[in-house]
Simulated assay, not measured.
Amino acid sequence: MSAHVEWQQGMQFKATSGSGHSVLMDGDKANGASPMEMVLMAAGSCSSVDVVSILEKTKQQVARCEVAIEGKRADSVPAVFTDIHLHFIVHGTDVSPSHVERAVKLSADKYCSVAIMLSASVNMTHSFEIVAG
């Protein structure tokens, strides 16, 4: 796995993955997400991939899945994350709470490389809700 980051202007950087996908990051947050916001988005995306995949394998009728992520950072430099909470909102018909709970737990404990890596130094917590329809 590889990536390349190139300065564009100001505090803007173009990051390109080894697979050829690019994203603009901006330390000033004017024209792109900051690198720390990207960390939160990576954790949420990685976990969501797991949750959706597990729910689909258990034949749950999931119409939509989203995750709201809140990160708290240290007050001093380096302002690392101290706490990250992922709240999954699963939309669907007859979705079993026990299946969602299991999917979230498996993602957190076994499958999501990003969240598991972060949990070595960050207090990672998870919750979920199910929205019918």
Score class of each variant (00 low, 15 high):
residue 77 V to Q: 13
residue 77 V to I: 14
residue 77 V to D: 12
residue 77 V to T: 13
residue 78 P to L: 04
residue 78 P to Y: 03
residue 78 P to V: 01
residue 79 A to D: 09
residue 80 V to S: 12
residue 81 F to C: 11
residue 81 F to V: 09
residue 82 T to H: 05
residue 82 T to S: 13
residue 83 D to E: 15
residue 83 D to A: 10
residue 83 D to V: 12
residue 83 D to T: 12
residue 83 D to G: 06
residue 83 D to P: 04
residue 84 I to Q: 02
residue 84 I to N: 02
residue 84 I to A: 01
residue 84 I to T: 05
residue 85 H to E: 13
residue 87 H to Y: 08
residue 87 H to N: 12
residue 87 H to A: 14
residue 87 H to I: 02
residue 88 F to K: 04
residue 88 F to D: 03
residue 88 F to W: 10
residue 90 V to D: 09
residue 90 V to Y: 11
residue 90 V to T: 10
residue 90 V to A: 09
residue 90 V to W: 11
residue 91 H to N: 11
residue 91 H to L: 07
residue 92 G to S: 10
residue 92 G to L: 07
residue 94 D to S: 14
residue 94 D to E: 15
residue 94 D to H: 14
residue 94 D to M: 08
residue 95 V to H: 10
residue 95 V to S: 09
residue 95 V to Y: 10
residue 96 S to H: 11
residue 96 S to W: 02
residue 97 P to W: 06
residue 97 P to L: 06
residue 97 P to A: 09
residue 99 H to F: 06
residue 99 H to N: 15
residue 99 H to G: 00
residue 99 H to L: 05
residue 100 V to H: 04
residue 100 V to E: 05
residue 100 V to P: 04
residue 101 E to G: 03
residue 101 E to I: 00
residue 101 E to V: 00
residue 101 E to L: 07
residue 101 E to M: 05
residue 102 R to D: 03
residue 102 R to H: 15
residue 102 R to V: 01
residue 102 R to G: 01
residue 102 R to F: 04
residue 103 A to F: 02
residue 103 A to Y: 02
residue 104 V to C: 11
residue 104 V to D: 06
residue 104 V to M: 08
residue 104 V to Y: 03
residue 105 K to G: 00
residue 106 L to G: 01
residue 108 A to W: 01
residue 109 D to V: 06
residue 109 D to S: 12
residue 110 K to E: 13
residue 110 K to S: 09
residue 110 K to Y: 11
residue 110 K to A: 08
residue 111 Y to R: 05
residue 111 Y to W: 06
residue 111 Y to F: 11
residue 112 C to T: 05
residue 113 S to F: 06
residue 114 V to T: 10
residue 114 V to W: 00
residue 115 A to V: 12
residue 115 A to C: 14
residue 115 A to F: 01
residue 115 A to M: 11
residue 115 A to D: 01
residue 116 I to E: 02
residue 116 I to V: 10
residue 116 I to K: 15
residue 116 I to D: 01
residue 117 M to W: 01
residue 118 L to M: 15
residue 118 L to P: 02
residue 119 S to R: 00
residue 119 S to A: 15
residue 119 S to T: 02
residue 120 A to L: 09
residue 120 A to R: 15
residue 120 A to E: 15
residue 121 S to N: 14
residue 121 S to L: 02
residue 121 S to E: 10
residue 121 S to F: 02
residue 122 V to Y: 07
residue 122 V to A: 11
residue 123 N to E: 12
residue 123 N to D: 13
residue 123 N to L: 04
residue 124 M to S: 07
residue 124 M to C: 11
residue 124 M to A: 07
residue 124 M to L: 14
residue 124 M to Y: 06
residue 125 T to R: 12
residue 127 S to R: 07
residue 127 S to D: 14
residue 128 F to W: 11
residue 129 E to Y: 03
residue 129 E to A: 12
residue 129 E to S: 15
residue 129 E to M: 03
residue 129 E to N: 04
residue 130 I to R: 03
residue 130 I to G: 06
residue 130 I to S: 07
residue 130 I to W: 09
